[in-house]
Design a protein around this nucleic acid. Structure first.
Lengths: 138, 138
DNA sequence: CAGGATCCCAGTGGATACTG
DNA sequence: CAGTATCCACTGGGATCCTG
């Protein structure tokens, strides 16, 4: 069925290229997690490093730079000793939280189905390869 | 400030690791575009190759395999000459369209702001680096 | 504490050639 | 047409060391 499907907004056709560029930003390995860690308010560098867990200081720095460059995060330096730097989502950055939440929710709800599908595929997938006749693999 | 923010669903805490694994699937270079190309209904391999534009047959194959493995698309072989293979979103695959649409919409709406921020950052970013006092870069 | 500079590896993905 | 197989370049990203 699905007579009408969902009406995907068509990445405005014009900006499909530019859209990809931005999707790759938030599609990288750490951006979503950093944004998630910042959702509660300002965080220091070392707090983020602890919260995100697994991230190297190099990647955390690069990720924060990228977010700052895109106007999604502000960086505030306090000239104290020891130095202290706070990162915080901008207005724009906070608007990203909703789309991300929708996506995360989808992943959470779909994970059982996906993992089941993977198990099925990995278990019985290969030998139907050269089968004769119409084949549905999956 | 920001007393309430948006209430991010907390990636169910438990499955943060597993969630990442799936996020990386749809976060790769081609998956979202292939899914987008399939939103209108079944498509043949060669049609997808034309639609997605820029994708190599290798990456298209790998991407489709991954989606098939995760139960998001079905692969149907017609034993004709020349051979024909149709790909189609599953029910589960179609449920992915909405979260993706939300994200694409966000990118489209935010692109002007982001590009402006990038221009500003790239133009005047570097020299405020070692400045004294509290500094807001951006 | 925050992060710059280097080195280096593994995986992603492109180009090309071949097959059923 | 719809792949598979190889080779290869690039780069994302980790580890480590050093500085203000």
């Amino acid at each position: 069925m699905s007579p009408k499907h969902i009406d995907l907004p068509e990445p405005s056709e014009s900006g499909c290229r530019a859209t990809r560029e931005i999707l790759e930003r938030i599609g990288d390995k750490w951006t979503l997690y950093v944004v998630g860690a910042l959702r509660g308010g300002p965080r220091r560098f070392s707090e983020l490093k602890r919260d995100v867990d697994g991230v190297s200081q190099r990647m955390l720095t690069l990720t924060l730079r990228g977010l700052e460059r895109d106007g999604l995060v502000t960086r505030t330096v306090f000239p104290s000793i020891p130095p202290r730097v706070d990162y915080e989502l901008t207005e724009l950055g906070r608007t990203l939280l909703e789309p991300v939440a929708v996506l995360i929710n989808w992943v959470d709800r779909s994970r059982p189905s996906i993992e089941a599908a993977r198990a099925r595929f990995d278990a019985s997938g290969q030998e139907t390869r050269g089968a004769v006749g119409m084949v549905h693999r999956a």
